[in-house]
Amino acid sequence: MPEYTVIIIRSVFAFFFVLLIARILGKKQIAQMTFFDYITGITIGNIAASLAINTNIQPLNTIIGMIIFTTFSILIAFFALESLKIRQIVEGSPTTLIQDGNIIEKNLLKVRMTFDDLMMGLREKNVFKLADVESAVLETNGKISVMKKTENNPLTPKDIGLPVESEHAPSLIIMDGYVLRKRVQYLGYSEEWLLGEIKKQGAEDFKDVFLAQIDSKGNVHVDLYNEEKKPQQVKQKPLLAAQLRKMQGDLESFAIQTDDQVAKKMYLNQSKELQDLINKVIPYLKE
């Protein structure tokens, strides 16, 4: 058998064998990988590369080597979950670099990190001033976690007591012109309603839609095959808020124009009640 044929066969086998090992080891994002995970992955990859192109190595030997590394990786990961000491030996522990706004120089020296490295890690977290940092920790995966000082944190609706409507992830309801009927029904909508929504955005039929999503507020986002047909979409909730304000203003105007005291009082009371209603619902009418 020609040598290149052997290499092709061994490469295909090595590829699928490494794929099998990766599935056995489980999913782990690169950003979450520890130094141990990184070294183990490189070693298994090198063994697989040797199996693919080094015809002087017996395939069985490389397979045994990969199985041993995989087995030890699984065992160590299991024991690390059960034991804090083993976890600290294998993964290490986080190192505090900044505490109470002060840099801990001895810990920088301990992890062999320069001030420039520290500042680069802070900038990756959108922090450019040391004065903004309350605490910074070097994680076991080499990333820096930053906690800003309280006065530098962004303001949230919770901080000012503003009620907001909870949301869930948007759902795909049309794909390649095909309506996902079960999903539409599960969300409580009808195909007739959906057709009306996509027509507002320039589609004549479902087949004109490449993708369509619906969010928890009932807003439908449509991506057409022909985007030139898509008109400027009117946002319904801000429009409703504006209409309510107009109605409240009209009631006040009627109260001023009439000479009938009973009618005047009625208009003012209705205007006040409508204003109270607007104050309650306005947080939910924001896009």
Rank of each mutant, 00 (worst) to 15 (best):
N126P: 08
E124R: 15
T114W: 04
R112T: 00
K125F: 03
E134Q: 15
L118S: 01
R112F: 04
K106W: 01
L122V: 06
D117G: 07
K110S: 06
A131D: 15
F128R: 13
I104M: 04
A131W: 04
N107T: 11
F128E: 11
F115E: 11
M120R: 07
A131P: 07
N102L: 06
R112G: 01
K129Q: 14
M113A: 03
K125S: 12
V111M: 08
V133E: 12
D116S: 04
R123D: 02
N102E: 15
N107V: 09
L130Y: 13
I104S: 01
L108F: 08
L108G: 01
L130H: 10
I104P: 02
L108H: 11
L109W: 09
L109S: 08
D117Y: 09
T114A: 02
K129N: 15
F115I: 12
K110C: 01
N102K: 07
M120C: 06
L122F: 13
D132C: 07
L118H: 01
N126C: 11
K110F: 01
L118Q: 06
I103A: 09
N102I: 14
K106R: 13
R112M: 02
I103M: 06
A131T: 14
V127N: 13
V111N: 05
V133H: 04
G121L: 02
M120D: 07
F128V: 14
K106L: 10
V127H: 05
V127D: 13
K125M: 12
F128T: 14
I104H: 00
T114I: 06
M119R: 12
F115G: 12
L130T: 10
N126D: 15
D117V: 07
M113N: 04
R112Q: 06
E105L: 13
L122R: 10
V133C: 10
M113Q: 02
L122M: 08
L108T: 00
D116E: 14
I104L: 06
V127F: 12
T114P: 04
N107F: 01
L130I: 14
K106G: 01
K125V: 04
L108Y: 11
M113Y: 07
K129S: 15
E124I: 12
N107S: 03
I103L: 10
R112D: 03
I103P: 11
L108K: 05
R123A: 06
D117C: 10
E134Y: 07
K106D: 13
K110H: 04
V111C: 04
N102P: 00
M119A: 08
K129A: 10
D132T: 02
L130P: 11
L118M: 05
K129I: 05
